[in-house]
Design a protein around this nucleic acid. Structure first.
Length: 581
RNA sequence: GCGCUCGUAGCUCAAUGGAUAGAGCACUUGACUACGGAUCAAGCGGUUGGGAGUUCGACUCUCUCCGAGCGCGCCA
């Protein structure tokens, strides 16, 4: 761990334990509570709670921490302040050594997780023969970022795209496919007109009784595994998947066909899951349905709320499917962790499913399932984002608009760039802007989608971060120096802006840790933004190319390291870092 | 009605129980014969929805009230 704060914490822990002595026995080990500080490089806050616990004077205890001498070589200055804080200033030599270490490290100081976990991430989940809309954006983008971060830490990540490829609507969809003829349907669907297809089918269903009957018969055939029907169903799924794939490529996420784990896949597992549930005696009959009453859930009348696993008519429900899912992930995939990147309205349902799985013994600590919930994308009217016609906005159109707007802005700000480069950069900038605006606020909250703000290129936006990266690349272009060639150069920290930048660069591992502690990508966004701001201050105050040696080389090395950390952190968010823009 | 989530500057958002609640936008004022001004610096702007409690210390934890969104049995 390269973070100087982490080093402090590690060095101080034994000191605190010793100072606590036997008077603190029984409790948890005392935490030095090292925090960033605006009055010094860091502050140690742990003396206050410890003094309280063992009944001594906090300032004296803080002084004892200082006198322990364990920070020799790490800190150049230690000062007891206020009621018992210790302000720490790092020795430049220490920071310089840490910088050298991360500069020589492909992982930029981020250690691999001590324990390699099997992590299933369930995200994106569009519906076959239905358009992907803004509602799918958050799940896809947040899930993708989490997948990237977890993979980077060395975990074994299994992506699962739980597409809606099964169920009653497929009767009418298949009949509509037959009516149209496969070729015509394929043409429409491959053009991305999924909504038109679905709506036409739906319209016929509501209008024509004859069609309804055919649709219902078709569902039965599908469920009974009729081969001809299955062929048609597969065609439909394939056509949708190739469309989804186009969207994913444009969006730049890692999902591929390999990751498809649709509802149909869990269909054959439901019977077994259900039988095992029967074996637990949790299952009870209620009003003809087979249900479980997990404790703590009530309906509007204050009665226990059931989770229904088999309807009165004998059909399995989506709870049954979710149950089969958990069992499959736990037993076949041996998942230590299951992340459900699903909108917050599903909170209660998932909570109930997880609870039943716990009661039945299929979800036992340390194996755990977590709902990574998120809020809505809102329009400027603060309501669910809709197109002018009142329909949900097609994701693909939204992405195209982002790219177009970014292209216009680039053409305006950087007329020298050639058309081909501009096109490539516009995609990186436009998509990056959309992703960053989605990732940079706390996922649990709704957020307002605002073109002007996300593409403003100023303030806390994707383009601003990319710009910081592009500027660094520009320095090297101008210098005619290969970036890799400066990586072994010693960095000397003299100016305060250099120190601040260095501290930030070293903090990447901590930023990743706190991000994954709560699966909140916005924390990593805040880190990257702070890094870009620190770099801007450095750039403004510390001339690189005009500096004398050895300062010039040192600053080139610092700039290169900054670009690497920027690009790495952006990559973990799924955002590309162009070399010019 | 019950449950979950949210409420922070005019707007959009931050803040692992730590000192004086921070950014961006907007507004005001400065800085280009230095590496990309798509920038930087400074100013303005707050009883953190109200109240109570826990704590040496609360935006953060607990309770309560107000307001908003979502969910609450045979769709997924």
């Amino acid at each position: 761990m390269s973070d100087p704060l982490a080093t402090l914490s590690a060095l101080l822990s034994p000191v605190f334990t010793e100072l606590a002595g036997d008077r603190a026995e029984g409790g948890a080990a005392p935490d030095p509570t090292v925090r960033p500080s605006d009055r010094a490089d860091a502050q140690i806050n742990g003396a206050l709670p410890l003094a309280k616990r063992i009944g001594t004077n906090p300032r004296e205890l803080a002084q004892a921490v200082v006198d322990s001498g364990v920070l020799a070589g790490v800190a150049s200055e230690l000062e007891v302040a206020g009621p018992g804080f210790v302000n720490v200033t790092f020795a430049s030599s220490f920071l310089e050594a840490q910088l050298a270490a991360i500069a020589a490290d492909d992982r930029l100081g981020v250690p691999e997780a001590p324990q390699r976990l099997n992590v299933v991430v369930d995200y994106s989940a569009p519906n076959v023969a239905k358009e992907m809309h803004v509602g799918h954006l958050r799940s896809t983008v947040i899930g993708d970022a989490l997948v990237r971060m977890l993979s980077f830490l060395g975990h074994h990540v299994i992506r699962e795209n739980h597409i809606g490829d099964w169920g009653r609507p497929f009767g009418m969809l298949i009949e509509h496919l037959l009516d149209l003829g496969e070729d015509i349907a394929a043409e429409g669907l491959s053009q991305g007109d999924l909504d038109g297809f679905y709506k036409a089918a739906n319209a016929k269903f509501t209008e024509s009784e004859e069609f309804q009957e055919r649709a219902r018969d078709r569902v039965v055939l599908l469920q009974n595994g009729d081969e001809e029907t299955l062929v048609l169903w597969r065609r439909l799924v394939e056509m949708s998947n190739s469309y989804f794939d186009r969207v994913y490529r444009k969006l730049g996420v890692l999902l591929t066909d390999e990751d498809l784990a649709g509802e149909s896949r869990y269909q054959p597992l439901m019977e077994g899951a259900y039988e095992r549930l029967e074996g637990t005696e949790l299952l009870v009959e209620d009003d003809g349905a087979m249900v479980v009453f997990p404790p703590g859930f009530t309906n509007r009348d204050g009665d226990p709320l059931p989770l229904i696993f088999r309807s009165r008519t004998g059909a399995f429900m989506y709870a049954t499917s979710d149950l089969a899912c958990v069992i499959d992930r736990a037993e076949r995939l041996d998942a230590d962790l299951m992340l459900y990147v699903v909108g917050s309205p599903q909170a209660q349902h998932l909570q109930m499913v997880f609870e039943v799985c716990k009661m039945a013994g299929w979800l036992v600590e340390p194996r755990q399932a977590i709902h990574v919930a998120f809020g809505n994308v809102l329009g400027d009217d603060r309501k669910m984002m809709r197109s002018r016609a009142g329909e949900s906005v097609k994701l693909i159109e939204l992405l195209d608009e982002a790219i177009e707007r970014a292209g216009d802005a680039i053409a305006e700000k950087n007329p020298e760039i050639d058309a081909q480069d501009r096109e490539a950069v516009a995609a990186m900038v436009g998509i990056g802007a959309v992703k960053y605006s989605d990732l940079s606020t706390d996922r649990i909250k709704d957020y307002v989608f605002d073109w002007d703000r996300m593409l403003a290129f100023e303030g806390n936006t994707g383009p601003y971060l990319q710009y910081a990266h592009a500027r660094i690349c520009s320095i090297f272009r101008r210098a005619g120096t290969d970036r890799a060639s400066v990586r072994a150069t010693a960095i000397e920290l003299a100016a305060p802006q250099e120190r601040a930048l260095a501290m930030r660069l070293l903090a990447l591992p901590t930023a990743l840790d706190v991000t994954l502690e709560s699966y909140s990508p916005h924390k990593l966004c805040t880190y990257v933004y702070d890094l870009a701001v620190d770099f801007s201050a450095f750039y403004e105050n510390c001339p690189v190319l005009k500096a004398d040696e050895p300062t010039r080389s040192s600053r080139l090395a610092l700039a290169d390291l900054t670009a690497r950390v920027l690009a790495q952190a952006l990559d973990l968010l799924g955002i590309e870092a162009p070399e010019q823009m």
